[in-house]
Design a binder for these strands. Sequence first.
DNA 1: CAGAATACCTGCGGGC
DNA 2: TGCCCGCAGGTATTCT
Length: 282
Amino acid sequence: MPELPEVETTLKGIKPFILGQKITNLIIRQPRLRWDLPQNLTKLLQNQTLQALTRRGKYLLFRFSAGTLILHLGMSGRLCVLKKDSPYGKHDHVDIFFNHLTILRYTDPRRFGAILFTPNNPLVHPLLSKIGPEPLSRTFNSTYLSKRAKRHRLAIKSFIMDSKIIAGLGNIYATEALFIARIHPLKPANDLSKQEHTNLVRAIKTVLKLAIKKGGTTLRDFKQSDGKPGYFRMELQVYGRQGKPCPRCHVSLQQLRITGRSTVYCKQCQPAPQKKVQTKES
DNA sequence: CAGAATACCTGCGGGC
DNA sequence: TGCCCGCAGGTATTCT
């Protein structure tokens, strides 16, 4: 469910309903997520007014005077805004009540998500301190990418999915960006040319911006306050389309597995990397 | 040290 | 219909 654009969509969807509002209560039905919820979370948040809601990578940051709630949606997490007394389901683990009448509900079947609290600057929290630049910021550029790639021989797809290199890029968008940039996902990161780095940076920004734009249309779901999640529908060019024709050249799309993650690419548009030949002399 | 495998959970679709 | 298997948008932790 949540890659960077969906987290951004979630943020935009819930923000107008809860910013400046005061937390009156919490209902915790399931405290066991990736890590157990803080024991005293209700006490920490009670009577706290939401001062700011921001995003860092795939983490949502809810700032209060006492500190910051750090929330990650994991693989299957969702947040939605509901009216009080809305019926809850099996995986609706946490309800945060604002002004007695609005519920911010956290739903997560797989419970890979996380909810943490820090009294300090969240950006120095161990989970956030090592995250790379935001892909849509100016600091994420080809100079940065080629500099970081120099030391790494691993597949470019794994490289750009490393949050220490870039914040928030997941399997779908890594796959899509490599297709757009016409780079084979297995190409070693330090074998990319300067031009390829430039193309890849541009492709990442393009695909994320477009996805966020499309996610914007789902904001209506949040406004309905009816418990429906914000769907994120978009036109994926290659992800999940293995065996189907490449949208550019119509050759059948290939699938492979890179460090456990399914990867789709076009063998014609994304030519296989040159294999390095080991010679006796060198 | 880089990079790969593993672990955490539930649900779903396909094959039998 | 039901069981078993593999797979799923993430990432910290453990291993080699």
